[in-house]
Structure formats: structure tokens, C-alpha cells
């Protein structure tokens, strides 16, 4: 190829001009790689870093005519209004309550499922269970919420029909704030436990087979093998997953909660994310809701960093 020679020539020239090992030489030699990453980098800067620059409106009174930088500074005014508002406590309690409930109930179940699948001796049965339990992951949130609403409907819903068989009274599940958190959490587990178990099944398949052989020789029962080989074997994965979900504590799934919300369950279902959407996009109070959103992201970041720090100190697995 013709470019081969020019490549070498270019190289020689660069070498003469910048010396053998300088950074510039390394960069010039592979300048095309910087060209390739230009488009993804531009995207990241515009659609990820520009909003971070734009978040300054949380400390300003944003006016559309004056733009991000031209609007007047107001310091922590919006944060103060939010923290002093009567909704503050309810929003924070609901946000943390829902995520914490999801975490406590939802974290162990995929692990148990993975351990159980891994111990299943019948390969075909195992495949079937995997196939069926992964499927709900691919159902869209809109369809998922409407499935919940259909099955829990007060009249002619499947759950009430079943309860009727046992002579129980009909319950209006979606119309009662008391049930909201449980419906949200358990339907989420129903939808995601199979898919979430994949990562643990992968970790289990990576365990050294000779450990099992040695354990069998030593007369360990199947339960003992799970307790002493499987569980320690997936601990690093479980730790990483736990850190990741702790970092998401303030990020409750807006999409699902927003769809499940109705005037009757608002006292349990209103979270920071839905509040930001309602005030910011429907009410056009940009600065105030940006402040509420920023409050949320900062707490999240602090949580993630401190949980990771803790994991670094007390276990072998951490994100960085």
C-alpha cells in the first residue's frame, strides 16, 4: 500500500522533531485515534457536561431570555425553600423508603435464585426456569404497570378473583396509599429477579471445579457446599452489586412510580424525581426544580463514594 511508506516517513519526521519518547510523539503517531473518538467525545461534552454546566441555574433565577449564564445569582435560595417546604420530609421519606425497601427485599432474591438454579440437577428444567424468569425483564414499563393495574383491579382483577375464592373481601390495591410501596417493590422483583440472577450464575460458573471435588471427598453435603464454596465464591460480585445499588438509593425509578401514581396513593408515591418533573417540566419552575434535582444527585454521589470507601476498607471488592 502507498500509505505504508508515507506512514514511515511521517514517523521519521516526528521522531526527529520531538525526540524518541515524548508524549507529543506518541500522540502524533496515532492521531487518527483522536479523530475517531472525536464524535463520541463531542456527544459526551454536549449532552452530559453541558447539563452539568447548566445546573448553575439551581443557584440562579433562570430566565429564558437571559440564558444559563446571564440570569442573576441567588445563592442557596431555592435549596432553602425546598428544605423548609412542608413537602420536603414526605419526599425524602418516600424516596429513601421505597429504595431501601427495594434494596432489602430485592437484593438477596436474585442471589438465592442463582444458587438454587446452580444446584438444580435437571438441565432442562433449569433452562425452562431461566427462560421464563428472564422474560419479564423485556416487558416495557408502560406494559408492566398496566399488567399490575389489570391484575390488581378491584373488579375482575386476577388477584381479587383469587382472594374471592377464599372468601376474602375485595381490596382496591391501587387506590390505597398503604399498599403502594409493596406493590412497587414486589412487582419490581417479579420483573427483574431472573435477569438480575444472570450475573451471579456467571460468577458461580467461574468457581474452580476442584473445590467441589475436594468437598465431596470430604463428605460435604450439598447445603454445605453452597454455604462454604458457592457463597464465598460470589461474594466479590455481590459486594460490587451492593455498592452499585447503594449508589442508586436516591434514584428511584421515576418511570414506574410516575405511571403508578394516582391522587389516592400520592401520600406514599410522591418522590423527589416525580416532584422535579411536576414542578419543573409541567410547572416551568426551572431553577427551583433544578435545585431539587441537584440536591438529589449530590446526595447520591456522596452515598456512592462513601459506600465504596467503606467496601475498600473492609472487603476485597470495590468499584475503584
Amino acid at each position: 500500500m502507498e500509505s505504508g511508506r508515507s506512514h514511515a516517513q511521517e514517523d521519521a519526521q516526528i521522531k526527529i522533531r520531538y525526540g524518541r519518547n515524548s508524549a507529543i510523539r506518541k500522540m502524533l503517531r496515532h492521531w487518527q485515534l483522536y479523530f475517531v473518538i472525536l464524535l463520541p467525545l463531542t456527544y459526551i461534552i454536549i449532552f452530559q457536561y453541558m447539563p452539568m454546566y447548566g445546573v448553575q441555574i439551581a443557584f440562579k433565577d433562570y430566565m429564558v431570555t437571559k440564558g444559563f449564564s446571564g440570569s442573576p445569582w441567588v445563592g442557596f435560595k431555592h435549596f432553602q425553600i425546598f428544605m423548609e417546604s412542608y413537602q420536603f420530609q414526605r419526599l425524602v421519606t418516600n424516596t429513601i423508603g421505597i429504595s431501601f425497601y427495594s434494596l432489602v427485599a430485592g437484593f438477596p432474591i436474585p442471589i438465592i435464585l442463582a444458587l438454587s438454579l446452580n444446584s438444580s440437577l435437571n438441565a432442562r428444567f433449569k433452562k425452562t426456569v431461566q427462560m421464563i424468569t428472564y422474560a419479564p425483564h423485556f416487558i416495557s414499563m408502560v406494559v408492566m404497570v398496566s399488567i399490575i393495574m389489570q391484575l390488581l383491579a378491584p373488579r375482575a382483577g386476577l388477584v381479587n378473583n383469587i382472594m374471592g375464592l377464599f372468601g376474602m373481601d375485595q381490596v382496591n390495591f391501587m387506590g390505597n396509599a398503604r399498599y403502594f410501596k409493596s406493590i412497587y417493590v414486589w412487582s419490581g422483583i417479579w420483573q427483574s429477579m431472573g435477569y438480575a440472577s444472570i450475573i451471579y450464575i456467571a460468577a458461580l460458573s467461574g468457581i474452580n471445579q476442584s473445590l467441589y471435588e475436594a468437598a465431596i471427598v470430604d463428605g460435604a453435603t450439598r447445603l454445605q457446599r453452597i454455604l462454604h464454596i458457592d457463597i464465598p465464591g460470589i461474594m466479590p460480585t455481590a459486594t460490587i452489586m451492593l455498592i452499585l445499588s447503594m449508589g442508586q438509593i436516591m434514584n428511584v425509578g421515576f418511570e414506574k412510580i410516575y405511571l403508578m401514581q394516582n391522587p389516592m396513593n400520592m401520600s406514599a408515591s410522591d418522590v423527589i424525581a416525580t416532584y422535579v418533573y411536576r414542578l419543573g417540566l409541567l410547572g416551568a419552575q426551572y431553577s427551583f426544580s433544578a435545585a431539587v434535582g441537584l440536591f438529589n444527585s449530590v446526595i447520591n454521589l456522596i452515598l456512592l463514594v462513601s459506600v465504596n470507601q467503606f467496601a475498600r476498607k473492609y472487603s476485597e471488592a470495590s468499584l475503584w
Binding site: 452539568m52 441555574i57 424525581a273 422535579v276 426544580s289 441537584l294
Partner: peptide, 27 residues
């Protein structure tokens, strides 16, 4: 790829922190 870690850092930081809904919408 010289400076790979810098680019990786720029990319991964966006997974830890974001401007949020309102600034993204305004953009």
C-alpha cells in the same frame, strides 16, 4: 492510545454524576 485514562475518566464520570432532568431538558 496515549491519554486513554483521561478519556476513560471523562466518560465514566458521567455515570456518577449528571446535571439532572431540568438542565438536560433546557439543553
Amino acid at each position: 492510545f496515549y491519554g486513554k485514562n483521561l478519556f476513560m475518566g471523562i466518560f465514566t464520570f458521567t455515570m456518577l454524576f449528571s446535571g439532572g432532568l431540568i438542565p438536560s431538558y433546557l439543553l
